Simulated assay, not measured.
Amino acid sequence: MIDGFLQIIGMITITIFALAFFSFILILIIGYVLLKKNKLIFPNLALFLMDSFHSILLRIFLLIGSEDTFYRVGIEFYNKYYENAFKKTKKRVLILPHCLRDTKCPAKLTPNGVECIFCNRCKIGDIIKVAKENGYKVYIVPGSTFLKRILKEEKPEAVFGVACNRDLFYGMNMLSRKGIPSQGQPLLRDGCINTLVDVDELITRLKSL
């Protein structure tokens, strides 16, 4: 009799977990669809889950999509969630990856990152000019560890980052957990050399935010 009761309890528990799991998958799908329509469902709850349980969310998301898609969804979410807060800030930094440079770039790496000399071999110079006109301090960095140093030294109110999907997501996630509004622009082509970003879209966003 006790064994039968325990089996019933076990079946009920498994059923509850199964229903909860599939409900969570459904919420992820609905949330993604609404995000594409420029809407957020339970934004504060979604932010808490994305900030605190992103590794678990990634594992669940892999059942219905790819890792890269998860990062893109996360970036879209952070962009949408922090857009209004970002617009209210004044002390901002723009973080550009050094891999956007031309392979024959003559600029040198310094303690503050790569110092652009505006040689016109790539579009970084054009981006920097627009960014500075719109109040950004610009850093061209060789790695994500630079971001932590910049935060410590500059103490910016907001950060705009350009990077591959994975690095950009984790950078925005870290900033979110610190309460710093961020915006991100994913690379169109990554690979750590000769990477590519939509310059026109980036410049438009830098001007509009």
Rank of each mutant, 00 (worst) to 15 (best):
G4S: 02
G4W: 02
L6K: 06
L6H: 00
I8G: 00
I9T: 02
M11S: 08
M11W: 04
A20M: 05
F24Y: 03
I25H: 03
I25T: 07
I27A: 13
I29R: 11
I30G: 05
L34E: 12
I41H: 01
F42K: 11
A46S: 15
A46M: 10
A46H: 11
L49W: 10
S52H: 13
S52Q: 11
H54I: 12
I56A: 12
I56Y: 12
L57Y: 08
L57K: 05
I60H: 01
I64C: 06
I64R: 07
S66I: 05
E67Q: 15
T69N: 04
T69D: 07
V73M: 03
V73L: 07
I75H: 01
F77V: 09
F77Q: 07
Y78I: 00
N79V: 01
Y81S: 02
Y81P: 02
Y81W: 03
Y81L: 01
E83W: 04
E83F: 07
E83L: 10
A85I: 03
K91E: 09
K91F: 07
V93D: 03
I95A: 11
P97T: 02
T103S: 11
T103E: 11
K104D: 14
P106T: 12
N112M: 12
N112P: 04
G113K: 09
V114P: 08
V114L: 14
E115R: 14
E115A: 14
N120E: 15
R121G: 08
D126A: 14
D126T: 14
I127E: 05
K129E: 15
K129C: 08
N134S: 01
G135F: 08
V138W: 04
Y139I: 09
S144F: 05
T145A: 12
F146P: 00
L147T: 09
K148V: 04
R149C: 09
R149T: 13
R149V: 11
R149L: 13
I150E: 04
I150H: 05
K152L: 08
E153I: 13
E153Y: 13
E154P: 03
E157Y: 06
V159I: 10
F160D: 02
F160Y: 15
V162K: 03
V162R: 02
G171Q: 03
M172C: 07
N173M: 03
M174A: 12
M174H: 10
S176D: 09
I180M: 01
P181C: 12
Q183A: 13
Q185H: 09
P186T: 07
L187Q: 09
L187R: 10
R189F: 06
I193Q: 05
L196C: 04
V197R: 04
V197A: 11
D198R: 07
D200M: 04
E201F: 15
I203W: 10
K207Q: 13
S208I: 12
S208W: 08
L209C: 07
